[in-house]
Amino acid sequence: MSILIERDQGVPSPALVPAQDDFAHDRGGAELTIGLINNMPDPALKATERQFMKLLQAAADPRRIRFHCFSLPSVKRSPEAKWHVDSEYSDLADLKHQKFDGLIVTGAEPVAPELDQEPYWRDLTELIDWAKVNTRSTIWSCLAAHAAVLHLDRIERRRLPAKRHGIFDCEAVGSDLLTRAAPAPLKVSHSRLNEVAESDLTEAGYQVLTRSAEAGVDIFVRQYASRFVFFQGHPEYDALSLQREYLRDIGRYLARERENYPAVPVSYFDAATEERLARFEKKARQQRHPALAGELPALILRSDIAAGSAAAVLFRNWLNDLAMDAEAALPAR
């Protein structure tokens, strides 16, 4: 299903926008066609869809974006999530019958010990190979970035000692159109258990664009026929995304679905909230029971997290770059 995104419109669900809209290039610029391959786990499926739509809307400026949602068919879904994908997303087979300016590919919840053993691995690697020559640029986010470099250059991700979870200050490395006019530092959400090392990436020919002293490499790129852009973090996350994940993990701990109590996200809650959460953690370890979730304290975020502001600049630069290519390809008028 196709969605038209404009800067001043509301952001609906895919089902609420007409699939067809005859449109001329009457705004002085080319319409961009962007695809989202949304492979996020069921609880985050709709949120991820909305977050990327809002991010593209914030970055669109005056141009219009024709936006298509897809999901890898081999990603396991609950009946409810499968119904949502089947009824509101385009069929992945249609991807190869259209020309996309840009593609965004999210990670998926891992279910196998190694990435190349995942049930969706074949579908994902076929998508990587297709995107190399059939898009102007593709963004690979979080686990999708790890999977792409594994497939392309056999770069193995490394397990972290603890989950990297929070808002991290990232600095630009050199100059690039993607990071032009980006705030310094860029405050970026990361939520992952693994990483790819900068030394492995540079040795294989990737260019690092941003890095964090605490979180390591953030954005890196490689040029094929398509420019591949890799995010180890989650540029789409809104201000409450990390909070939702943290509360989900507390709930799983209390229900004995995970053994370790989750760490508080880095540089995310204010100091008073962190103190209250430390007291709650002590009680949760002593009285581990799902009912205790009702006693969670009020949560207040730090005032300086600036969630999404850096991503809006990065995506505006990405869309501008795509638009220059698209407009150059238009016939003279």
Rank of each mutant, 00 (worst) to 15 (best):
residue 5 I to A: 02
residue 7 R to E: 09
residue 7 R to V: 07
residue 12 P to T: 09
residue 21 D to S: 11
residue 22 D to T: 11
residue 28 G to R: 10
residue 29 G to Y: 10
residue 31 E to S: 10
residue 32 L to G: 02
residue 33 T to I: 08
residue 34 I to T: 07
residue 34 I to N: 01
residue 41 P to F: 11
residue 42 D to A: 07
residue 43 P to D: 08
residue 45 L to K: 00
residue 45 L to H: 00
residue 48 T to N: 05
residue 53 M to P: 04
residue 53 M to N: 05
residue 61 D to W: 10
residue 62 P to R: 14
residue 63 R to A: 08
residue 64 R to H: 12
residue 66 R to D: 11
residue 70 F to S: 06
residue 71 S to I: 06
residue 73 P to V: 07
residue 77 R to D: 02
residue 78 S to G: 04
residue 80 E to P: 02
residue 80 E to A: 13
residue 82 K to T: 04
residue 86 D to K: 06
residue 89 Y to V: 03
residue 91 D to C: 04
residue 92 L to M: 02
residue 94 D to A: 12
residue 97 H to E: 14
residue 98 Q to V: 10
residue 99 K to M: 11
residue 100 F to W: 15
residue 100 F to H: 12
residue 103 L to T: 08
residue 109 E to W: 11
residue 112 A to I: 03
residue 118 E to M: 01
residue 125 T to F: 02
residue 127 L to H: 02
residue 129 D to R: 13
residue 131 A to H: 01
residue 131 A to K: 03
residue 132 K to Q: 15
residue 134 N to R: 12
residue 140 W to M: 13
residue 143 L to A: 13
residue 144 A to D: 01
residue 147 A to R: 07
residue 149 V to F: 03
residue 149 V to Y: 01
residue 155 I to C: 06
residue 157 R to G: 04
residue 161 P to G: 12
residue 162 A to L: 09
residue 166 G to L: 09
residue 168 F to A: 06
residue 168 F to S: 04
residue 169 D to S: 15
residue 171 E to A: 13
residue 173 V to Q: 14
residue 179 T to M: 06
residue 184 A to H: 14
residue 185 P to E: 07
residue 188 V to A: 09
residue 189 S to C: 14
residue 190 H to T: 13
residue 190 H to Y: 14
residue 193 L to P: 00
residue 199 S to R: 14
residue 200 D to Q: 15
residue 201 L to C: 02
residue 201 L to H: 03
residue 204 A to L: 01
residue 204 A to R: 09
residue 204 A to C: 02
residue 205 G to C: 00
residue 206 Y to F: 13
residue 206 Y to G: 00
residue 211 R to Q: 14
residue 216 G to Q: 09
residue 216 G to C: 08
residue 216 G to H: 12
residue 223 Q to G: 10
residue 226 S to N: 15
residue 228 F to I: 01
residue 229 V to K: 06
residue 230 F to W: 08
residue 236 E to T: 06
residue 241 S to G: 07
residue 242 L to N: 05
residue 242 L to K: 08
residue 243 Q to D: 13
residue 244 R to S: 13
residue 247 L to P: 04
residue 247 L to S: 06
residue 248 R to F: 06
residue 250 I to L: 11
residue 250 I to A: 08
residue 253 Y to R: 10
residue 258 R to S: 11
residue 260 N to Q: 15
residue 262 P to M: 06
residue 267 S to T: 10
residue 267 S to C: 11
residue 268 Y to C: 04
residue 273 T to A: 03
residue 274 E to V: 15
residue 274 E to W: 05
residue 275 E to F: 07
residue 278 A to P: 01
residue 280 F to S: 02
residue 281 E to L: 03
residue 281 E to D: 10
residue 281 E to H: 04
residue 283 K to D: 05
residue 296 L to P: 00
residue 296 L to I: 13
residue 298 A to G: 14
residue 298 A to C: 01
residue 302 R to G: 00
residue 312 A to N: 09
residue 313 V to E: 03
residue 316 R to E: 11
residue 318 W to E: 01
residue 325 D to M: 09
residue 327 E to D: 15
residue 331 P to D: 03
